[in-house]
Design a protein around this nucleic acid. Structure first.
Lengths: 199, 199
DNA sequence: ACGAATATTGTGGAAATCCGTGATGCGAAG
DNA sequence: CTTCGCATCACGGATTTCCACAATATTCGT
């Protein structure tokens, strides 16, 4: 699925007008009349951002936001509200909301925020993909190989590693070579660099 | 100087009452009747946090905040305001303010926020000190040693480094040993780890 | 029970690193 | 001018890593 702006608002008119505005600026949209509807459609892999009304029938915007955070969502959330107060805005932003906008608002401003949010999400997903690729590499290592890797990363000499693991130096060398192979590196330093950035 | 809460507000009564409140909870305070006064007293090494009024004669709270940020301040800022609006709060928080509180506010809440801000500042300063200590180590390296270190961190073999720098392998070994000594590490991996976390 | 993956060890040699000792040239500071 | 830090290099031995070839044991899933 391509990145979308997910509009969650129980006001038909708002969904229509915002949807039209965003689509006209080249931002694909999907609309949901309630938090529950969005939640049912949501899955962590959905890319994009959320435009979320505060006050809605059923689950409120902040409640949905909390729930999504708990479930591991990293979607940037732009809160929209007609009657927001300062504490509400402060609390939303401190919890990690991307923005908090009062309706009615300037169209250009809002579109820009949405585009910023989409870019943020893309960056986050790229970064996550990187760290995933590293994790998937390490997950392919056998237990022994992981143990050896730990110690290699600690700068321990093969000889000492052999002692610690109660195996021969030769075996350590084998594990070492195998894990380097699996991790796609040629030296211990490269391995350290690889795991340094993405962790 | 020990960490302090710096109260910047042009209302004498507020400064007095907040100052008393915080001192009574064990938080040392210093008061300033204007943004200009605080700015004159400020220096980047001052630890603590700022309680900053929005509307003041002369320079406003947000103006002071911007100025401090430009000058490299990392002090957590808690904005205080009697007549704040949502856009103002949103903009302050998105620019990195620690909190945004409306007066009058709950005393316990405020004290807690101040304490959180002080803790944040302490963590930031500890982290900065770590990275400073690393920087001061690297700054003691000679030009050649830095060149060699770069390549060592890239996982390059001494032989190749010697080629690249147009010097003998022996000299590379010397530089390598010297820089390890200066950086306080015993292996290339340790060096990579050292520069990985603090950078 | 059979086969695949994993863990283990050995031999032996090539390549690389580590390190002590000693030495030369050069530029900057005293 | 002399001293000091830096960069440069050599010899030679100890240590370590790297690697190809070869083999046995253990575990685990079908």
């Amino acid at each position: 699925m391509n990145p979308h702006a997910y509009l969650v608002d129980d006001d038909d008119a708002i969904r229509d007008s915002l949807g039209w505005l965003l689509e006209s600026r080249g931002v694909p949209c999907l609309s949901y009349p309630s938090a529950e509807d969005f939640l049912a459609a949501w899955d962590p892999s959905l890319p994009g951002c959320i435009l979320l009304d505060i006050r809605m029938d059923g689950m409120s915007g902040p409640e949905l936001f909390d729930l999504l955070c708990e479930r591991g969502s990293t979607l940037p959330v732009i809160f929209l509200t007609g009657h927001g107060d300062v504490p509400m805005a402060v609390s939303a932003l401190k919890q990690g909301a991307f923005d908090f906008v009062e309706k009615p608002c300037n169209d250009n401003e809002l579109v820009n925020r949405v585009i910023e949010a989409l870019q943020l999400d893309e960056h986050q997903r790229l970064a996550a993909a990187d760290s995933d690729s590293v994790n998937s590499l390490t997950s392919r290592l056998t237990t022994r190989e992981k143990q050896v890797m730990e110690r290699v990363l600690a700068g321990t000499l093969n000889k000492v590693i052999a002692d610690e693991l109660q195996i021969s130096m030769r075996t350590v060398e084998v594990h070492r070579a195998n894990l380097f192979e699996k991790m796609g590196v040629r030296t211990a330093v490269e391995l350290a660099q690889l795991l340094a950035g993405k962790r």
